[in-house]
Amino acid sequence: MALYQALIELADDHLVLGQRLSEWCGHAPILEEDLALSNFALDVIGTARSLYAYAAEVEGKGRSEDDLAYLRSEREYLNCLLVERPNVDFAHTMLRQFYFASLMEPFWQAAVNSDDKVIAGIAGKAVKEMAYHIRHAGEWIVRLGDGTEESGARMRAAIVALHPYWEEMFTPCECDALPDRAALRSGWEANVKAVFAEAGLEWPEPVYGHVGGRKGEHSEVLGRMLSDMQYLQRAHPGATW
């Protein structure tokens, strides 16, 4: 079951993040970013779908991708806490995306040549998407960090707000079929700090890093997100959509 568990962790990360990103659709600061943020969301939800489908197959209990996404409670969701953080503003959203993609790009890169052909297939597609997310979110971090007094202040506020949440992403998963996340941490920090330097932003002092997501212990926001997301499936058990 180690593989199943690892796939669910990954799938939940992608779906919860996609759910957050899709909240922007129709509300972005400029129409061009409505399209960009929707592309981000489509990428990660698409990956979540492939991961759930594979997890369901690995589990072998006849559940579908939608059963896994829509019929598990918040205590069964294993996403890291970072991805459920609210959008707050454009600075928070771009920073959250940048943190996540900066881990997932090297993660998928390491999985591209996996012996597991399904994982290799998912990785091959996702690695390119994540590279683009790093680039686009990174562009915005530099612009917001360096732009105006207000944008700099908002970017710094986002860094402070998300600082307790990035370390959890590197919690090792006990599955040999997937790359070791802990090993990617130093590279991640170096890349993030390089963009911060370009943006004139400082990497803050260490703070207490929250964990719990991988054990299904979340903040309160996830339960509300899932009750919204799952409502039709819950209200009409067994219906086809």
Binding site: I30, L31, E32, L35, A36, N39, Y132, R135, H136, E139, R143
Partner: peptide
């Protein structure tokens, strides 16, 4: 056409808007 503040954002937006 599209609107963007600089070259990099223009290329990103062009990718997101016109190559979906």
């Amino acid at each position: 056409s599209l609107h963007a503040a600089d070259e990099a954002l223009a290329l990103s937006a062009a990718r997101d808007v016109y190559t979906r």
